[in-house]
């Protein structure tokens, strides 16, 4: 059901993952990874796993983003490769 929404979320997920791999600014990579996590949480909702989706949204888009930003503060702002 709702295959259009699932397809859209899949496309956004893949696009966000590719952007996170190729972008040079690490802060933008963190934001796109958060988009990736949130879209995967939406996909889990559409598959009926509400509890897993909740955990994914809270941890993947919340705590991991903060720790990634902290890691950027501890190292450099821009990718070196």
């Amino acid at each position: 059901m709702h295959w259009e929404i699932e397809l859209l979320m899949m496309l956004v997920m893949i696009t966000a993952a590719l952007i996170a791999l190729h972008i040079r600014s690490l802060l933008a990579a963190v934001v796109t990874l958060n988009i990736f996590s949130f879209m995967s949480a939406g996909l889990m909702v559409s598959m009926g796993a509400i509890d897993v989706a909740f955990t994914e949204a809270v941890v993947g888009a919340g705590a991991v983003g903060i720790f990634n930003i902290l890691a950027i503060f501890c190292t450099t702002r821009s990718s070196l490769d």
Partner: peptide
């Protein structure tokens, strides 16, 4: 409903860590 100790704890920690950040 969905939710519970782990999610609530992570949300509380996230609020404190956002303040720290």
């Amino acid at each position: 409903s969905p939710g519970g100790g782990f999610q609530g704890g992570v949300l509380l920690a996230v609020s404190v860590m956002l303040g720290r950040l």
